[in-house]
Design a protein around this nucleic acid. Sequence first.
DNA 1: CTAACGATTCGCT
DNA 2: GCGAATCGTTAGT
Length: 199
Amino acid sequence: MKLPLEFYLHNDVVALAPRLLGKVLCTHIDGAFSAGMIVETEAYCGDNDKACHAFKYKRTARNETMFAQGGVAYIYLCYGIHYLFNVVTNVENKGDAVLIRALEPVEGIETMLQRRKMNKLNTRLTAGPGSLSIAMGIALADDKSSLLGNRIWIEDRNNDILPENIIASTRVGVESAEEAALFPWRFRIKNNDWCSKAK
DNA sequence: CTAACGATTCGCT
DNA sequence: GCGAATCGTTAGT
């Protein structure tokens, strides 16, 4: 069951990020189908979050997509090599998004291994935002893609994560963001090996 | 126009 | 477990 538009329009990105845990990210790209359960996310908020690209609603050519209506993909190039996949949320002009940091492979594992040029399965396949984008076949060209279409979408497979199995912690790479660095806006599933290393 | 940095990953010890 | 590689975007000269 594909998540409906209303899910993405929720006005509190910090409440939405943990709700994406346990949902399944699916892609149908280059004729191949892949799916992975979301096990780690981070919330970014344009209004009061200094760590966010869209802090104080500042627009640049790169982050323009973050200001779109919820339900589209925002894909951003980090460190010159890594594509980071984000889900834009809220209504237009808010600049809110959820970064997907790690997946647990569910379907199309052979395809993922090929894309990653790997022979055997290990947690590096989809642990980490740059890795999972490659494994799922997501590239910069998919920036602004709707998550309601038939190329990239997110499914609810009735696998809700209980609150006691969700761990909130501080985000990575935000030391210079002052008070925003303390916000516990990183969410992951307890005892899941596919999460990138805990801080 | 130029310099600095970052929502990271990979290979090696 | 740790340190180097890497380059587009941003902001400052």
